[in-house]
């Protein structure tokens, strides 16, 4: 048991000494400009002006993480950024492939004021076929009231004439159940088509108003 304990102690000593061994002047690895400062972990008067010290001027604090960790952290952050960039590119590519501009139709929902209407759901029909039924949570409705614009539908349509019907349900004035529809006939051209469902307040009549705007 004593021998085993001594062996363990020796192993720990070897492991603890390993970085300083690697940083020794006689080590096989040649010093490189982007290599971590060899003696950051054990700073001394001779090692302070090392090549890597330019990146971290001054004497490092005892609690500061070793430069190896810093480099690793920077690499991880770089990789995260690469993944985000790649994800963005893939998303754009997917959109272009699934919804090519010449057939693309996008429908958005916006809400202004909303004093006379609390949105509950929107149902969309294109050419008499239901394409979307969306239930709004309180948070989503609040986001719309704060100026948010929601892409409720993205699909493909052939070039030509089409009809969009939108049904809005919710609570109207005096907290009554409210259901209204809005219709638009639109011409789908070669380019992408953008339509906006606008919910506004008609102050003079104390009623909500539902419009569909064609963004040509």
């Amino acid at each position: 048991m004593v021998l085993r304990g001594a062996m363990m102690a020796w192993l720990w000593a070897v492991i603890a000494a390993a970085p300083s061994l690697a940083a020794a002047p006689g080590a096989a690895a040649p010093p490189a400009a982007d290599a971590p400062a060899p003696a950051v972990g054990t700073p001394g008067p001779d090692t302070a002006p090392a090549a890597g010290a330019a990146e971290s001027p001054g004497v490092p604090l005892p609690d500061a993480p070793p430069s190896d960790f810093k480099t690793l952290d920077q690499e991880v952050q770089g990789m995260k950024k690469d993944v985000i960039d790649l994800n963005k590119d893939l998303f754009v590519l997917q959109e272009e492939l699934l919804f090519p501009a010449n057939t693309q139709v996008a429908v958005y929902v916006s809400m202004d004021v909303g004093a006379f209407f609390a949105l509950d759901s929107v149902t969309l029909k294109i050419d008499n076929k239901e394409v979307k039924n969306y239930l709004y949570t309180a948070r989503e409705a609040e986001a719309l009231l704060k100026g948010g614009v929601q892409e409720i539908y993205l699909g493909n349509l052939k070039v030509g004439k089409h009809e969009l019907v939108a049904f809005f349900t919710g609570k109207g004035p005096v907290d009554r159940d409210y259901k209204r529809g809005a219709t638009i006939d639109f011409e789908k051209g070669v380019g992408a088509k953008y339509l906006e469902l606008k919910i506004t307040d008609r102050v003079t009549k104390h009623q909500p108003e539902f419009k569909i705007k064609d963004w040509d």
Partner: peptide, 15 residues
């Protein structure tokens, strides 16, 4: 999912 609850609210799991 988003579903209507008994008290009339719409609840979404991801929220």
């Amino acid at each position: 999912f988003v579903l209507k609850s008994m008290d009339g609210r719409n609840l979404r799991l991801s929220e």
